[in-house]
Design a binder for these strands. Structure first.
Lengths: 408, 408
DNA sequence: ACTTTTTGTTAAAACTGTTAACATAATACA
DNA sequence: TGTATTATGTTAACAGTTTTAACAAAAAGT
């Protein structure tokens, strides 16, 4: 039951029905491909005639193409299969991280076209934009050139204003009110560019996932743990953005209001207990604050190293992981109580040790969730190989073509 | 950008456009009443002919009526004003609370028709349902009888399954898996009955508000503080329900994971710091746990008494309030970081002391919110006279007639 | 008395979904 | 081999909606 906003609504016009059904057809082809007209008619509970008209439009526009005939039928005329026409155009995804920046190119269905490439992140925004642009151009040249590029999706570890394309705050990059969109638009004038926060992008990657499309959840939370904690929330198939596009900052929920100091200035934030630095710090028996420079001995010691140590029998490493796991679970419990999602996705380096920490996480979740059902909320680990941030950046470009039209 | 759910979508049929525009027209009449056809055409950015057709349907169905002619125009034919036809039918709202149960009757626009009546809450479910039914019948008899009743909305301080109408858990009433809908359906066979959690109902009361309709926010959080803490979240004009209808349980976010014991079994929940009992307990210098029976001296001392004491110069009362205010603000900060709403509504007895506690609340909010904008999130106090829970119960009955149709 | 302005209605056009009939193409069966 | 059966896809007529244009109704200005 959604209230119609009397200050911002969309009337149904003569073509609105067509528009709605068109998007449904595209979504169904995307998820069920390959598919015949008759299949669509059955799925949509309508007549084949209507489908013929809808598909004719899409064929004329070149969005859909006819392919081989189906031959696994028992009797009757064989169906002609329909496919999305995703070959001609491409999307470029960019993931800016503290140390390196990654690029990926896909077709409009999100299928990867080239290997992921990367370069060391430069912190001066204008110079960074120039270098990034060169890499994008190189990548596109290897394919079909800029003319084939339908959009560039850029993901940033920080708060962004998606309307102006300004990076409001990205502590990991030292950026404050950086007009990233402005810099990039100079280089790619006629290409749509989208800037988004990485936590939100990870959530987008899961709703718009093409592989396991049929099992996709429409209410989900993506929690990504690395230097900080990024969270993206999807409700009813739509990303929760909030008034200032800052919704989803669960990383700074307190575990104890006068606990460990956090980068954000407050104390006892969840992030301060479960970030990679927090775990490493715990291993070295120190309370390394994010606010202070790292001691030498820890500077080259990564969370991957710590997991290796734990696997090779280092008890201190294992107990450091277990404590992080407990705090991780306590924070997840809060998210579950607050959102009641049908699925939680977990990303970040520490999830490679999921087999070591799952029991501790689940115990902590059960400890603080309010009902038994909530305590059993399913969790799926998203491994780094799936590139959730890059896939989210892709979705920024490719998803609008399949999204529900705004109506009422 | 909402993803179409390929497992649960709604195709546009021949009548879908009409359905959409119909709901828009109803919404606009509800918010702008009185209104002419020409006004509607301007607001909806369409032609008057289309409006004539739409209104003719609504006139035939008796949902809209024509009223007086407008005479405040400068020139030209005078407009005939349209009104919602809300007189014939009525809705009954029920608010079940720990000590008393309240009833209100309204027309289909939410206008109150009779004074609020109440009776002491009885904890035995079947007996309670019988008594409640008698009161509903008495109320309806004073009006036009049961035939005029379009629905009964019931609000409960606990978790509910809105599909089955079962109260899963209501600690304040000692109810566990009580089939409240079942009991009531026996008494009112042909009347639609809705059961909902009180925190969610409070949030509903604000989106579906008729008075300040034009200034209604479409992303809001309602926080209600009394024996416990109830929270309802509205995103994009729609109540956030979650998979098990338990979303919005922010009351059990931790302030300190090993802090004060809470009724829920965990420690350090926000609720344990800001509930009325917590504040009273603080005043008496004791850590009264919700889990233990109350000492005699406090049993008859209410939060209203405490506020009175504070106003009359009792320093201890004031500092108890101020500490609650600080904790209140710290919890609100978490909600703001998580949801980024455009408005927060605050209800409960303690808000009557808002002038005394606002500075402490705002300071605490600013202390833990991540950006300046978030720290300035507006807060509106909802006084008890506005009956937010009862108004939410009304919305359960009246709102569906104005809600956006499900499409795509 | 005539023009101008605004409101509301009506008739026809344009677009969309719906129904029913039909052509197409394959298999089953006698 | 020929006919019946079954499933796919198209076409034409029909029905429901929005849109356009023309017009009637009612009030005020000139």
């Amino acid at each position: 039951m959604r209230r119609i906003n009397p200050k911002d609504f969309t009337m149904a016009k003569r073509g609105t029905s067509r528009e709605i059904n068109r998007q449904i057809v595209l979504t169904l082809i995307r998820t069920h491909q390959p598919l015949s007209r008759a299949d669509l008619a059955r799925l949509m509970d309508t007549n084949r005639a209507n489908i013929t008209f809808l598909i004719n439009d899409l064929l004329d526009e070149g969005l859909v193409r006819e392919g081989a005939m189906g031959n696994e039928v028992k009797r009757g005329r064989r169906p002609t299969y329909l496919y999305l026409n995703s070959d001609e155009a491409c999307a470029v995804a960019v993931d800016i991280r503290a140390t390196r920046t990654y690029l990926m190119m896909t077709d409009m269905l999100g299928n990867q076209l080239e290997n992921v490439v990367s370069f060391p992140t430069v912190y001066e925004p204008e110079r960074f934009s120039k270098i990034l642009s060169e890499h994008i151009r190189k990548l596109l040249d290897r394919y079909k050139g800029i003319s084939a590029c339908r959009g560039i999706g850029v993901v940033v570890p920080g708060m962004t204003d998606i309307k102006t394309g300004i990076v409001l705050r990205a502590p990991a990059l030292g950026w404050l009110n950086v007009d990233l969109l402005g810099f990039l638009r100079k280089e790619f004038e006629n290409v749509p560019i989208h800037i988004e926060n990485s936590g939100k992008a990870c959530a987008l990657s899961q709703i718009w996932e093409t592989r396991s499309e049929l099992h996709t959840h429409h209410d989900l939370v993506f929690v990504s743990i690395s230097d900080g904690v990024g969270v993206g929330v999807v409700i009813n198939g739509e990303l929760m953005r909030g008034k200032h596009n800052t919704a989803g900052e669960f990383g700074h929920l307190p575990l104890s209001i006068d606990g460990l100091p956090c980068l954000c200035g407050a104390n006892g934030c969840w992030e301060a207990y479960i970030s990679n630095l927090a775990t490493i710090s715990r291993y070295f028996g120190k309370n390394l604050s994010q606010r202070q420079p790292l001691p030498l001995e820890t500077a080259n010691f990564t969370i991957e190293d710590l997991v290796k140590q734990a696997r090779s029998g280092d008890g201190k490493a294992l107990s450091a992981l277990h404590l992080t796991a407990r705090y991780l679970g306590l924070g997840l419990a809060s998210i579950i109580n607050a959102i009641d999602p049908s699925q939680i996705y977990l990303g970040g380096e520490i999830t490679e040790a999921w087999d070591l920490i799952e029991p501790q996480v689940r115990d902590a979740i059960r400890e603080r969730t309010l009902t038994k059902d909530l305590g059993e909320t399913p969790i799926r680990i998203v491994p780094a190989i799936e590139h959730p941030r890059l896939r989210g950046a892709v979705a920024l470009v490719t998803a609008p073509a399949f999204a529900a039209p705004k109506v009422a």
